[in-house]
Amino acid sequence: MLKQLVRLLRRNQKSKDVAKSRLQLILVQDRIGIDEQLMQALQTDMTALLSRYFELEQDGIEMEMQREGQSMALVANIPVSSLKIRRPLQA
């Protein structure tokens, strides 16, 4: 829904503005060197950590870098089915 809206707005945007925002996104990724492998590793680590506290719906996990205005954000969508209460945490 939101994605469709963004796409719709983009269509009316001037192509140079689209170019600029794509570039900004690409360069942040290039500069930090964030590639697919790294994102995958991050997702694995994050879900492992969160699994200690929550029951997660593994299939619904989405994680990506998004540009928000002038900065980048790591946006994660991690569906939680329940809280793991009173489970002793290992150090």
Partner: peptide, 13 residues
Amino acid sequence: SGDMMNPDDIIDI
């Protein structure tokens, strides 16, 4: 016409 990045855009980046 807005179909090419201008120098300001590029320098900004």
